[in-house]
């Protein structure tokens, strides 16, 4: 009994120390919200194209494309989306994945002007004027991006703009893993 009591302070230190190691780990983001969509089929939605933009709309069926696709939720009023636009355009060309867009709570004319100004890297864009499809995807804001595998299953989600090296590497890694799984 006495010997066990001697070990007690060490046990307490180990427990508290372990908590600190977990809690102070720079990789951990305490604000990260776990997505329930990961490993699940994409939500059911059907969005019309943006009026005046010559790419088709986006629906759930388009996402089982037989190859990984990236769905990016964006809006013309969203400043980080502007920063992300160039990076996504480059990544889509470099990595060779189709980029689809959901235009979240945007006026069609504003979205059209935004795409004309910055260029349109999206093969399909669904116009979600009411924001209802955004709720189906469980988004908390824009931009958000989802990587979907060839069968229409959500593989990876990123909240915020994909601009940092870390975010881009995350996407590349998820894409490589998805392609590898599809090949095997």
């Amino acid at each position: 009994m006495q010997r066990i009591l001697v070990l007690l302070p060490i046990a307490v230190v180990l427990v508290i120390g372990g908590f600190f190691v977990w809690g102070l780990n720079p990789e951990r983001d305490p604000n990260a919200i776990p997505s329930v969509l990961i490993s699940k089929p994409v939500p059911v939605f059907d969005l019309a194209p943006i009026a005046g933009v010559d790419v088709p709309g986006l629906a759930s069926g388009d996402l089982a494309a037989g190859e990984p696709v990236l769905v990016n939720v964006f809006a013309s009023w969203c400043v980080p989306c502007r920063a992300e636009h160039k990076v996504l355009t480059r990544l889509a060309a470099q990595e060779g994945f189709p980029l689809f867009g959901i235009n979240y709570k945007d006026k069609p004319e504003d979205a059209k002007a935004w795409l004309e100004e910055l260029g349109n890297p999206y093969l399909r864009i669904g116009s979600d004027e009411s924001g209802r499809s955004g709720l189906e995807w469980g988004i908390s804001g824009v931009p958000e991006s989802f990587l979907i595998d060839g069968t229409g299953t959500v593989i990876w989600r990123y909240v915020g703009p994909i601009v940092t090296e870390q975010a881009q590497d995350d996407l590349r890694r998820a894409l490589a893993a998805t392609r590898e799984r599809a090949a095997s």
Binding site: V36, W137, G138
Partner: peptide, 8 residues
């Protein structure tokens, strides 16, 4: 709501 956003 839980189906879309999780228990969170």
């Amino acid at each position: 709501l839980v189906d879309r956003y999780g228990d969170y």
